[in-house]
């Protein structure tokens, strides 16, 4: 395989693995974030505090824990997930779920209660008022998505320990950068770094545009 096509493949793989991880994290984290943001209950502060602390989980530490869990000798070994793309997706999703939850709930808490009160006094029922709160939280949800995807695609620890940097299977941008650097291929590592940075910038710009569209559309 030529170098160019391999770089393209690695880039696409990084995008789809981290994209899927962010989507999975959104699927799990958004509802939890919404619940944490919308409903007051005993121990909510403790729960949000834990998730906020987990936001800064070192990737190698999470990688090690998940490696021990997914390893054949570990409790989830029967799933045969270690060193597969799926393990990477799961690992990165777990890594970014706290980000998803924290930013979402934080946004909703800061939007609520003024927007909820505004909607209610203008005649909205509880459900429509909740919908307004969510609609106003869109910016935070987009931020959460962007932060999640960016952290997923730029992390190394989980990818190395769960994916193993297997060529053609679990090799992604960050693991390639690490590998090429130890191999002394500094120029190649630098090129991959540029690709990673460009991707993150482009993705976030696109997301900002998408946010505007969605916001406009939500108010149609």
């Amino acid at each position: 395989m030529s170098l160019e096509s391999e770089i393209v493949e690695i880039t696409l793989r990084a995008l789809s693995i981290s994209g899927l991880a962010a989507l999975v994290a959104a699927g799990i984290g958004l509802p939890i974030g919404v619940v944490l943001g919308m409903y007051k209950f005993r121990g909510r502060d403790a729960v949000t505090g834990v998730f906020r602390a987990l936001m800064s989980m070192p990737t190698v530490a999470l990688g090690l824990l998940l490696y021990l869990a997914f390893s054949r000798a570990g409790p989830l070994g029967f799933l045969e997930l270690l060193y597969t793309p799926l393990a990477l997706i799961i690992g990165q999703a777990i890594l970014v779920i706290p980000i998803m939850i924290s930013i979402t709930s934080e946004t909703i808490v800061s939007v609520d209660p003024s927007i909820r009160e505004l909607s209610r006094t203008l005649g909205a029922d509880e459900r429509a008022a909740a919908a307004s709160v969510l609609r106003e939280s869109l910016g935070g949800v987009v931020l959460a998505l962007s932060a999640s995807f960016s952290r997923a695609i730029s992390e190394l620890g989980v990818a190395l320990m769960l994916g193993g940097n297997i060529q053609g299977l679990t090799r992604i941008l960050t693991t390639s950068i690490a590998l090429e650097t130890t191999r002394g291929e500094i120029a190649l590592g630098l090129g991959l770094t540029v690709i990673l940075l460009v991707l993150m910038v482009v993705f976030n710009l696109m997301l900002n545009q998408a946010e505007k569209r969605v916001r406009w559309w939500l108010w149609e």
Binding site: L12, R13, S16, I17, G19, L20, L23, G27, Y83, T84, P85, L86, G164, I166, L169
Partner: peptide
């Protein structure tokens, strides 16, 4: 979600299903 998932699946997972991975 489904489209991203299926593209990802087509690209990378079916090869692990059809072929054996020797670690």
């Amino acid at each position: 979600g489904i489209s991203v998932a299926s593209i990802g699946y087509l690209l990378y997972f079916n090869q692990t299903v059809e072929r054996e991975t020797l670690v």
